[in-house]
Simulated scan of single mutants.
Amino acid sequence: MSSIDIYLCQHGRTPLNVAGRLRGHLDPELDLVGQAESRELAELLVKLGPTRVISSPLQRSKQTATAIATAAGLSVELDGRFIDRSYGEFDGEPAAEVVAKYGRVGAAPGVEPAAAVVERAKAALVEVAEASQDGPVVVVSHDAVIRNLLKALAPDYTPSELVPQRTGCWNLLRYTDGAWTLIEVGSKDDPIETALAR
């Protein structure tokens, strides 16, 4: 039996997060809090000796991933399949207004279906897990991608346990012989101490 740990991380905070606006394929950089969150995340995860750091191509993820990769002496690998959900014409709109009008964000016209988000991101995650001889591996992505992935990979969890993903947090997924186990959700704690307490 072989297994690999993947730390699936939400990028640091941006001004659009603060404003409650849908980020989608817009490309804001991290704000000062987001930069601090990225440094803190790097300090936590570097202790684990990550072997790869993979990121969505958007700036907010790349900046977060770069902090982790630099601390670990690695380079950031980009994978477009981890890019944020596309909200089409609603990119940049207040999420609450979209929900008020359509009932939920996913019901708005032109929004990328959750199933499509899961299909592309899950394929990338499986590829990463099967191509990585040693772990752990860090993947930096986006709230909508992570939430939908975790719902698909860990159906025993309730949606309320998986949301919201705080900026700068990590989730631990373990891939063992083709099966996924969700070990930890939305943490900002020291992963070593968390493992010892588990």
Rank of each mutant, 00 (worst) to 15 (best):
E97R: 14
R81G: 10
E97H: 11
G92Y: 09
A144T: 14
S75H: 15
A115F: 08
P109Y: 07
Y102F: 13
R120F: 12
I146S: 09
V111D: 03
V118T: 12
G110T: 06
R120D: 12
G80T: 03
S132K: 01
A123M: 07
V118I: 13
A116K: 10
L153C: 02
A123S: 10
V140D: 10
E119C: 04
G103F: 04
A154T: 08
V137N: 06
V118W: 08
A100N: 08
D84I: 07
L150D: 07
V118H: 06
S132W: 00
F82A: 09
P94Q: 03
V138R: 08
L74Q: 05
V138M: 06
S141K: 03
F82E: 13
A129L: 02
F82S: 07
E127C: 01
F90C: 11
F90D: 06
E130V: 05
I83Y: 15
E112F: 02
Y102P: 04
E97Y: 09
V128K: 05
R104H: 12
R120Y: 14
P109N: 00
D79R: 03
R147E: 10
L74D: 11
P136Y: 13
G106I: 01
P109V: 00
Q133M: 13
A152S: 15
D143C: 13
E93S: 08
D84G: 07
V138K: 05
L150E: 02
L78Q: 15
K122L: 12
S75R: 13
D143K: 15
A116M: 09
R104E: 15
V140G: 05
A107D: 12
V128G: 05
V145F: 06
K122F: 10
A124P: 11
S75E: 14
A107Q: 14
V98W: 11
A123I: 06
A116W: 09
D84R: 12
P113S: 06
G103D: 04
Y102G: 05
R147K: 10
F90I: 08
V117T: 01
A108T: 04
K101L: 08
F82P: 11
G110I: 02
P113K: 03
Y87G: 08
V98D: 03
Y87F: 13
E127S: 11
A107P: 13
V139T: 03
S141M: 00
L149H: 00
A121E: 12
V118N: 08
G92F: 03
K101F: 08
E89Y: 06
E97A: 12
D91W: 01
V126S: 11
A152I: 11
L150S: 04
S75N: 10
V117E: 02
L78M: 13
G135K: 01
